[in-house]
Nucleic acid binder design. Structure first.
Lengths: 174, 174
DNA sequence: CTCCTATTTAGGATTTTTCTTATTTAAGAA
DNA sequence: TTCTTAAATAAGAAAAATCCTAAATAGGAG
């Protein structure tokens, strides 16, 4: 996927190609990992010193609406991340440091909810993110780990530290 | 799951039971759908008029860390939603109005990424959200619908309207 | 090339969420 | 009960994301 290819899609959808827009696409294209809006702004700075934050967000939103970029919202990281959607895949999100890693493929690609609960809802896509702790955060946050598999939601580590107080805590009894 | 049960979990993890905390749990427990922080604040108002916004967010974060509530971040809705995690399930998120519906169960419960990409990463959970348009937004945003299945990310509707300009747009050619 | 118009932009205001600090409070120990 | 201390709170400041308005510009039409 090239810059020209992406800009063509934008143009075909009836949107204009501005220098700022082109630059944002280029930054996303050459990025090796999902970027935050702040990181994109930073890379944009030398080229367009007067770019408003809204321009970055607006363009990212447009690209997301066009299905060209994915927006990854981590529950722990403060900022969202954006990446070009070359092909659909899911992500590993570290609850400790907020770092995001791409996984190859997606186990729920094409899955649809049962029709009796879906009703008239028209499914256009989904997001699937795997949460946990990277090896560094495991070392830094606790020692005697005991995985509590809640299926989803943040889980628990015996002896790990909360992000709230930094205090060491024990796994709650159910 | 009762209020007492939940408060016991919090206490066992070493946290204190405050009137505000108890009230927030009660509000979440009797809610029929995921609530925003603002909605919880609103319901808290008559009981504790001086509650700071941070108290609501802090308690929701704690409950999320304890695996007791799920935080749902819609890419379109401005605010996050929170709900008690009675049992793990996924959600339908409308890209038009941001409305969230709970689905029964989850098709990827227990799924783990292949070990060669997982490495030392310790998986504690995941989030899976299905995106699309509810029947009302389908009516309001466009007529001649043509689903473009990108697998994930926002998809496209011929003749629908962007959330950016309200302008009617055409599906981009790939 | 010039004109026209809807789109895009910059800038600042607003909303949502988080952070910081000093004060208050829950809950165990004496 | 009173004491002690870590945790929780309120209040205001800060950061992240969005909204609003007027001015600038892309890109098609003439």
């Amino acid at each position: 996927m090239s810059v020209t290819h992406i800009l063509e899609s934008i143009k075909k959808a009836g949107y204009k190609i501005t220098p700022q827009r082109r630059a944002i696409v280029q930054i996303l294209l050459k990025a090796a990992k999902p970027l935050t809006a702040a990181e994109i702004s930073q890379q944009l700075q030398p080229l367009f010193p007067d770019t408003s934050q809204d321009t970055v967000y607006r363009n990212l939103r447009l690209l997301a609406e066009l299905g060209l970029v994915a927006q990854i919202r981590s529950s722990t990281a403060y900022s969202d991340c954006f990446e070009l959607l070359k092909e659909h895949h899911c992500h590993l999100v570290c609850l400790g440091c907020g770092n995001i890693t791409c996984l190859p493929g997606c186990p729920v690609d094409g899955w649809q909810p049962p029709s009796h609960v879906l009703g008239d809802f028209w499914v256009t896509g989904h997001s699937f993110e795997v949460h946990g702790y990277c090896s560094r955060c495991q070392r830094e946050r606790g020692e005697g780990l005991s995985c509590l598999s809640f299926g989803s939601g943040a889980a628990w580590v015996r002896g790990a530290k909360t992000s709230l107080t930094g205090r060491t805590f024990a796994r709650p009894q159910s």
